[in-house]
Write a protein that binds this DNA or RNA. Structure first.
Length: 493
RNA sequence: GCACGGGUGUCAGAGAGGCUAUGAGCGGGAUUGCAGAUCCUGAGACCGGAGUUCGAAUCUCCGCCUGUGCUCCA
C-alpha cells in the first residue's frame, strides 16, 4: 500500500511521490528563538519527528532541514527588555530548544540553519523580485506586490482576494507602513535606530520574516522540494508568502510538492496563549510528567487534529506508557540468547504459539497501514496496545524454551514499533534498572526488607489484619508492595 | 463577514458505504487472603432533518453547534 499524505494546497490526501527516487527533501519551519518552547512547539516537532521516522523506516533517505529564526521583532524587543545582546538571547534559547527536543526523543534534523547566515541569499532573491516587478521599494522597506501574482493568493487557505479586500474595510487604507496595499508583505525592513542591521542595496536594515525560509530552503534543498511543513497557523500568511517569493523568483512551480500542517494544542478547551494564562512550557510540564508520557500524549492523536491538553490526557498516557514499559520489561527478562526454533507464524495455526506470532504479524502490518495513511499514529498506537495485550496473554501460557524464544521475538517487535518508529522506548538498561536506580531505595531497603519478612510470617499465619497493617506502614513510607507468585516485590512511589 | 476544519458511547479519540477501533472510567469473571498488575468478558455512540443506496457514522443537500485563520504565533 502506497504512502498517502494530506496536502494542504491540494486539500486532499494524495499519493506521496518524491522528486528523486528514494530521497525526500523536507523543510520544516522552526522556532523564533525569543523564549522557551511551549507545548505547541513540542507537538509540532513531534509530529514531524514521526513523519521523519516513518519516511526513513519506509526506506527513504530524508534530508530534513529545520531553521531557527534568529532575528525578528520579538527577539529585538525581548533582548532590550533583558538588557542583553540579541545574540546571547538567541544562543541560550537554541540551547534550551535542543534540551527540550532531546528530552522528548525527537531525532535531530540534518541541518538547523539560522536565518542570519543567509542574508546574502535573501538579498539576491529580493533584488531579483524587484527586477521582475514582483516587489517594490518603499520608504520604510521593500515589499512584495501581491497584485503581481494574484492567482497565487489563497492557495493554502482558499481565501479569495476580492473578498478579503472587501472584508478588510478601512484597514486597506491605513497599512501603518508605506506599503501600497495591506496584503503586501515586507521582504526587507529598513533599520530603525538601535536595531541590528545588515547592509543592502536599499540601505541598512534587516530581512522580513517570510523571505528567510525561501532563501534557506532554496539554498539547501533547491527551487523545488518534496515536503514543507509547520504549524497550522503558518499557512497564512507565512507559507503563502513563500509560494509567492519562491515561484515568482524561479518561475518554477510548485515550489513545494506536499504541504503538511499540524493541528494546535488547546488547554482545557481553550487555545493556548499567553493572554489567557494557560501557556505551558515544555520545561514546566516535564517537571510533572515523564517525557515519554508527554510524547505519548501528544502523538496519541492524528497530527492534523487539534489536541486538548488536560489532566486526563496525561493520566491516560501515563497508564498506557506504564503498560508498554511493563510488557517490554517482561519480555526482556524472559528472553534468552540461545536461538530456539519458533513455529511458523500464521493466525490459522493449530499451535497457540504460531497463532500468536501470526497475530503479531497482522498487527505489524495494520500498524504500517495506519502510518502509511497520512501518518495515523493514533491508529498505530491502538495496534501497539493490542499487541501488548496479546503478548501479555501469550506469555502467561508459555514456559521454558518456547517462552524464551517468544520473548525474544517480542523484544524485537516492541523495539521496532514502540521504539524505532514511535520513539517511545527508553533503553533496555533504563527499563531494567529503573526501579533499582532510585537513590532513595538504598536508604530504606533494610527497613523494608525487615517489614516484608515480618509480613511474610503473619501471612503464613493467615493473620490478614496484621499483614495489611504492615502494608499500610510501608505505604506511608512511600513504598508500594506487589505480591507475585515469586514473592512480594516493592517500589518507591 | 469571508476561508478552512470539526461534531462518534461517561471522557479521550480512530474509522469513511455492509465486517470488534483503541485507551481511561463503569459492570461481571479468572488469578489473589485482600489490594495492585495481568488476562477473559459486559453495557454504552455515530448533532438534527431530508435525500442517494438493497444497505450511510461514512456520500449529497439544508439547518444547528463548535474550532482555527483572515494581525506576530508551531
Amino acid at each position: 500500500m502506497p504512502l498517502r499524505v494530506h496536502d494542504t494546497r491540494r486539500r486532499e490526501k494524495v499519493d506521496f511521490s518524491t522528486m528523486s527516487p528514494g530521497k525526500v527533501s523536507m523543510y520544516i519551519c522552526g522556532v523564533t528563538v525569543y523564549d522557551l518552547c511551549h507545548l505547541g512547539h513540542a507537538r509540532c516537532y513531534l509530529a514531524f519527528d514521526l513523519i521523519h521516522r516513518w519516511l526513513e523506516k519506509s526506506g527513504f533517505d530524508v534530508n530534513y532541514i529545520q531553521n531557527f529564526t534568529d532575528i525578528e521583532d520579538k527577539i529585538i524587543i525581548r533582548a532590550q527588555e533583558n538588557g542583553e545582546d540579541w545574540r546571547e538571547l538567541v544562543d541560550r534559547n537554541i540551547a534550551t530548544y535542543f534540551e527540550d527536543m532531546d528530552a522528548l526523543n525527537i531525532l535531530r534534523a540534518d541541518k538547523y540553519p539560522r536565518c542570519t547566515d543567509y542574508v546574502e541569499q535573501m538579498i539576491e532573491i529580493i533584488t531579483d523580485l524587484i527586477q521582475k516587478e514582483n516587489a517594490y521599494v518603499a520608504d520604510d522597506g521593500v515589499y512584495f506586490d501581491i497584485e503581481s501574482a494574484p492567482e497565487k493568493y489563497g492557495s493554502l487557505t482558499g481565501q479569495n482576494i476580492e473578498a478579503v479586500r472587501q472584508g478588510a474595510g478601512g484597514r486597506v487604507d491605513d497599512t501603518g507602513s508605506s506599503k501600497r496595499d495591506h496584503k503586501d508583505f515586507a521582504l526587507w525592513k529598513k533599520a530603525k535606530p538601535g536595531e541590528p542591521t545588515w547592509d543592502s542595496p536599499w540601505g541598512e536594515g534587516r530581512p522580513g520574516w517570510h523571505i528567510e525560509c525561501t532563501a534557506m530552503s532554496m539554498e539547501l534543498l533547491g527551487a523545488q522540494f518534496d515536503i514543507h511543513g509547520g504549524g497550522h497557523d503558518l499557512r497564512f500568511p507565512h507559507h503563502e508568502a513563500e509560494i509567492f517569493q519562491g515561484e515568482c523568483h524561479t518561475g518554477i512551480e510548485p515550489v513545494v510538492h506536499h504541504w503538511l500542517h499540524n493541528g494546535f494544542v488547546n488547554i482545557d478547551g481553550e487555545k493556548m496563549s499567553k493572554s489567557l494564562g494557560n501557556f505551558w512550557t515544555i520545561k514546566e510540564i516535564l517537571e510533572k510528567v515523564d517525557p515519554m508520557v508527554l510524547r505519548l500524549a501528544l502523538i496519541n492523536a492524528h497530527y492534523r487534529s487539534p489536541i486538548d491538553m488536560n489532566e486526563q490526557l496525561l493520566t491516560d498516557a501515563e497508564k498506557n506508557m506504564a503498560r508498554i514499559e511493563d510488557t517490554y520489561r517482561k519480555v526482556l527478562l524472559a528472553e534468552e540468547e540461545e536461538p530456539v526454533q519458533l513455529p511458523r507464524a500464521e493466525i490459522t495455526s493449530g499451535l497457540p504459539l504460531g497463532r500468536s506470532l501470526g497475530l503479531l504479524e497482522v498487527m505489524a502490518s495494520d500498524f504500517a497501514k495506519a502510518m502509511d495513511d497520512d501518518f495515523n499514529s493514533r491508529e498505530a498506537i491502538a495496534k501497539l496496545l493490542a499487541a501488548m495485550r496479546e503478548i501479555s496473554r501469550m506469555m502467561s501460557e508459555l514456559s521454558g524454551d518456547d517462552l524464551a524464544a517468544y520473548a525474544g521475538y517480542c523484544v524485537e517487535w516492541i523495539e521496532e514499533h514502540a521504539g524505532q518508529i514511535l520513539g517511545l522506548l527508553k533503553s533496555r538498561a533504563e527499563i531494567l534498572a529503573e526501579a533499582e536506580e532510585d537513590p532513595r531505595r538504598a536508604e530504606i531497603t533494610e527497613k523494608v526488607e525487615q517489614l516484608l519478612v515480618k509480613r511474610a510470617e503473619v501471612r503464613t499465619a493467615k493473620d490478614w489484619a496484621a499483614a495489611d497493617a504492615i502494608r499500610d506502614e510501608l505505604t506511608t513510607m512511600g513504598v508500594v508492595v506487589t505480591d507475585t507468585s515469586a514473592g512480594p516485590t516493592w517500589d518507591i512511589l
